[in-house]
Design a protein around this nucleic acid. Sequence first.
DNA 1: TTTCATGTAACCTAATTAGTTACAATATCA
DNA 2: TGATATTGTAACTAATTAGGTTACATGAAA
Lengths: 149, 149
Amino acid sequence: MKRNSRLSSILHILVHMAEKPEQALTSEQLATFIHTNPVVVRRTIAGLRDAGIVTSSRGHGGGWLLGRAPEGISLAEISAALGETLLPFSTEPESPGCLVEQAVIAVLDDFRVAAEKLLAEKLSRITLADLTADFRRRYDLIGVSSHAV
Amino acid sequence: MKRNSRLSSILHILVHMAEKPEQALTSEQLATFIHTNPVVVRRTIAGLRDAGIVTSSRGHGGGWLLGRAPEGISLAEISAALGETLLPFSTEPESPGCLVEQAVIAVLDDFRVAAEKLLAEKLSRITLADLTADFRRRYDLIGVSSHAV
DNA sequence: TTTCATGTAACCTAATTAGTTACAATATCA
DNA sequence: TGATATTGTAACTAATTAGGTTACATGAAA
């Protein structure tokens, strides 16, 4: 798994899970989808489990399942559960007492709040179901075209 | 200068420059504002020079000046000149041929394009002049309150 | 009771980025 | 013209981060 590709990797995994709704997939299987290893997968989706987006079970036949229907899982929730900020610029004061810095930080933080709200709204309108639908379109298209050839 | 604080650090520098419009400030002076060293400053604002946001001159009495009036310098330009993306999630394919991944990347890229447009619009409406105005408000406020005490 | 799976801590490694050193190029001033 | 001040930039070092790996405890099913 490359750097900064956590969101897309996890979505990749979730769509595969959505395509096999009744079959628990192991960390091992999920890891192969995104070319990494099981421990990284478990570590990464631990937050999704805490958010109820997925469930896990141990032991023989165990593994991972979606916590609810894909229609009820938005990208906003997933992104939040990964604990990543979409706007990763820092506004930590480094010169306490400098009014110039305070002004910069104030403006930047205002921007951040407004921007995060906008992005969260956009992301909340995209669900896992939208991704699976897009996948199926592609799948059907390939099916048709390879049939045609 | 901490990680991920390039944008706020550079804004910090630019506001200081805007407050001394006729005086060329050296990399050394700029570096002290953001607690780093001159080479890091030169390296970091090289992009701003290329974009015409600042100008530099060598030799005795040389240093850095704003390339134009603060009213004409937007945060969108500054951010772009720094070469940073506001939405740093990767959508590089890691499993070429996987339709699930392709669907994920397509949706994510659509989101990114729309989001970047929104953010750029918001940032283009904030100028360096807004930051200096905010700074001066703070400055006057402190002046008044310390006078009152 | 054996096997299969997650949970998690601890450590290793690779990648990134800031910091540093060194020096060439250039401009000013005495 | 020579001394000094300044940017430009390459090359290297150090610190930080995040992914990868190993090890093992916990728990569930056959």
